[in-house]
Every structure is written in C-alpha cells, then in structure tokens.
C-alpha cells in the first residue's frame, strides 16, 4: 500500500533535520493513522480508479494523472494536506485561505534557546499545481535576520528544493523550517551579508537576530 508514514520516517532520519521538537511531536496521533481509521476516507481510496479496480503501489498515482479521477485525487491530496496542518505541531499554526484552499497562512514560534525565541513569525505556504510532485512554496512574511533567509523571506532549505519528496508532509516541512531557526547554516547562505556576520562574529550576529525578533516578530 502507498503509505506516506513509512517513507517519511526513513527520509526524516536521513536528511539530518531531526530535532528534539520533531521527536516529541511524533508522539502525537499521526494524521495518517487518524485518516486510516475513518471508513469514509480510507487510504485505499487513493489506490482505486473511478471504476473501482485496485492499482498497485505509488505508480498508481502516475497512472491516475491521466484519468478522470484526477480531480478527486487532487481534492483528496489537498484534503490530506489540510488534515496534516489542522494541528501541525507545538508552536506552529497553519490556516487555509477561504478563497484558495492551496494557500495557507502560517505562524512559527521561534525555538527556545535560539535568538528567535519568543518571536512569532508569519509565513505563507502555497501548494502549486504540481504538488505533491513539486514542493510547497514557503516564504517568511516577518522580517528575520538569518543567514538562510533573504530580505524577501525566501528560504534556503534542501527539502524545499532538490531534496523534496512527495512523501514529506506539510507539517514536516514546517517543522524543518522551525528547526532551521535553531540551526543557521552560514556555509550555505541566501543572505550573504548575514552569513558573513554569523561567520565572523556569531555572538554579535545573534544579538542582531534577537533585536530583529523583538522589533518585528513580537505580538
């Protein structure tokens, strides 16, 4: 069966984004298992054609792309995304726009122990036409002093680019963004001036990050 959970677990372990926050969040009931226990939205739905015949493994998804059931499948996937973000994780909220179910208002709380602690950062997330074959688009709306986030809020994070996998969940993406706040990586910068500051004088750079958090990210 096409199970997102197991694939997610293996990917979560290999891309180095696993943080204590993610571990504790995984103890909460998994959105997929909630879905699976509800007869109305059994995951097997995903593997059936409009004629009801069973299809095998994830290749079924590609086959279905050319069939009339496509709209149903897309609606299901977006619905799945909504289930995933209904209660994503502690310190993270995500709410879809009424007039565009692919577009979410997101908030992420700055992780404790980071210069972004106590900040509430606004972001926006969009599931493009090609989702889940293409990654969601995510951007900070709140100004932030971070080497991997540029002036326009664009984020340099591998899973939002070449390391994207259709098996990754929205909540995993948002947890990874939150984890990025705890682990700035000035060696792979998107904001070169901030990265230079972080490399040359990390303490002073963190001071600026704290100031910006206080100035722009406090409610």
């Amino acid at each position: 069966m096409w199970c997102r959970c197991t694939v997610f677990e293996s990917i979560g372990d290999c891309c180095g984004t696993r943080q204590s926050g993610i571990d504790s969040a995984d103890k909460a009931p998994h959105p997929i298992s909630v879905l699976a226990s509800s007869p109305a939205s059994s995951p097997s739905l995903l593997l059936r054609t409009p004629h009801g015949s069973s299809q095998g493994k994830s290749t079924a998804f590609y086959t279905l792309l050319s069939r009339p059931g496509l709209i149903t499948i897309l609606a299901f996937l977006i619905g799945l995304a909504h289930n995933q973000v209904a209660d994503p994780a502690p310190g993270i909220t995500a709410a879809p726009h009424d007039d565009n179910l692919r577009y979410f208002d997101v908030t992420i709380q700055g992780p404790d122990g980071s210069p972004f602690q106590q900040g509430i950062f606004k972001l926006e997330l969009f599931l493009p036409e090609e989702y889940p074959m293409a990654p969601p688009k995510v951007r900070f709306l709140t100004k932030i002093y971070h080497p991997n986030i540029d002036k326009l809020g664009r984020i340099c994070l591998d899973i939002l680019k070449d390391k994207w996998s259709p098996a990754l969940q929205i909540r995993t993406v948002l947890l990874s963004v939150q984890a990025l706040l705890s682990a700035p990586n000035p060696d792979d910068p998107l904001a070169p001036d901030v990265a230079k500051h972080y490399k040359e004088n990390e303490k002073d750079a963190q001071r600026v990050s704290r100031e910006w958090t206080q100035q722009y990210a406090s409610e």
């Binding site: 726009h97 565009n100 692919r102 577009y103 926006e124 969009f126 599931l127 493009p128 036409e129 989702y131 688009k137 951007r139 326009l152 664009r154």
Partner: peptide, 15 residues
C-alpha cells in the same frame, strides 16, 4: 486549477 497567490506570482516574476 491552482490559482497562484499574488506574492508567489510576484516572486516568480522577480526571478
């Protein structure tokens, strides 16, 4: 069809 929101559309245009 997916309707690209303003900001993501402008980011595409910027790039």
């Amino acid at each position: 069809m997916a309707k690209v929101p303003r900001n993501f559309r402008l980011l595409e245009e910027l790039e």
